[in-house]
Design a binder for these strands. Structure first.
Lengths: 245, 245
DNA sequence: CAGTATCCGATGCGATACTG
DNA sequence: CAGTATCGCATCGGATACTG
């Protein structure tokens, strides 16, 4: 009894899309992940068995295709035309979520691996020179094994993320905590404020410290404004007036 | 372990919306149903217990509000601002479903109650005169107890749907089968074709028979074109060329 | 009319280990 | 690296009956 027994196209679409995890897997695919283990990084709490099952179902449903990767090693998953057409839907879902059900950033929703994987994906290598730049993130409150991360970027080799010291000399150190970095990423806190309150500190040459705000992106949903009054940390005057406070 | 443990707004939105039935309940609310038992008619296979549970959760989540109905009798549910903002999402879902996963109209997806409820909702009473018009639908292939339905419409009293003979004189009889009527409703078959092939027959005064196509609407998704080649009944030439057939 | 109470069965899914 | 195999519990939700 999987379906809804309705001819309505909303029901038919929902039958495909609203199994647990499915929309998050799709999000990963639409944001560019192609390999099984890359997809896993975007949904770390999902078991590989289940991911495999979902991918199969999405393929059956005509949303994605599984095809051989270039060199002869392994497979890749990519959205079909039908899958591509779901992009606006996933975006709207994210925008709505950001407006109305923004995460409270409870400890269980803070994950350095997920955050750094997001940051990696949104870091534009073209903003860097051909000389390799190494940025080390250190999260004071993360578990020891996930405290330090290295972003290795260059114009031509793209962006690489390491959890073990790659051995290169570090150009820029970023000291902060996971909650602050996540809040920055999600647009919950201005970078300015994080510096002023000492929640983030840099170490490295001045020009690299200054360039940080140009290459360190926020989440694609980072500039969507929160609309939910209950979840608003600080109310702007317009909202206060609306609520008659 | 209900959530996804992710700060991502897509995940947060999904936690609210992708429980089974939730999006269909929301569809009903956005299409105008306000009362518990009206909502039930839109999701007849959902148990009242579960509907109640979903409504509570949607209320907790800030998507809908439960408020007293006018006269002092009972409650009504209505979307909040956050809920209203989900309308485009539900519409997109329906459009995508209609393009790519259109129902095959298998027997379990044919339901005269659901269909007539849909038709009732989309019938515009303003297209009728102040004189009461009674239209009787008869589905040759429906279960005896669901064969005949009456639509009672007038300019000022709106549209009423009955499963038991309301006793008024019938102005227009529509004889057809459930599959044909559903296909017409979903835009899978042109009205012209249904008449020409004898799948639908009318009985009543000529001007009322002629006016049928003006007031009998199709589903809100009825004019969305199917894109899925596997599900296409007849391929147009452009598609045939694309597929090199 | 508008739900609640209760029960039980299917199964979804998480956990862990394993393989080509 | 890219998945599969197996297992067992929890819970979701379907069915039915009941109530203010």
């Amino acid at each position: 009894m999987k379906g809804y027994g309705q001819y309505c196209p909303v029901a038919k679409a929902t039958e495909i899309l609203n199994e647990r995890w499915t929309l998050l897997v799709l999000r990963e695919l639409l944001f560019g992940s192609r390999r099984f283990n890359d997809l896993r990084k975007g949904v770390p709490l999902m078991s590989p068995t289940l991911l495999s099952k979902r991918l199969k179902f999405l393929e059956e449903s005509g949303v994605i295709e599984r095809c051989r990767a270039e060199p002869g090693k392994g497979w890749e998953y990519q959205p079909t035309t039908a899958g591509q057409e779901l992009r606006p839907l996933v975006e709207m879902l994210g925008i709505w979520g950001q407006r109305w059900v923004r995460s409270r950033l409870t400890p269980d929703e803070l994950d350095p691996g997920l955050l750094m994987w997001d940051i990696r994906r949104c870091t534009d290598a073209k903003l860097f020179t051909s000389r390799r730049t190494v940025v080390q993130f250190e999260f004071s409150d993360a578990a020891p094994s996930k405290r330090r991360w290295w972003l290795v970027v260059s114009d031509k080799d793209g962006v690489d993320l390491c959890l073990t010291d790659p051995g290169f000399e570090v150009d820029l150190y970023i000291f902060t905590d996971l909650r602050t970095m996540t809040a920055l990423w999600m647009g919950d806190m201005p970078l300015r404020h994080a510096f002023d309150s000492g929640r983030i500190e840099l170490e490295g040459p001045p020009e690299l410290r200054r360039s940080l705000q140009s290459w360190l992106q926020r989440s694609p949903f980072g500039n969507v404004q929160n609309q939910n009054p209950k979840r608003k940390v600080s109310l702007d005057t317009k909202t206060r007036r609306q609520l008659r406070l």
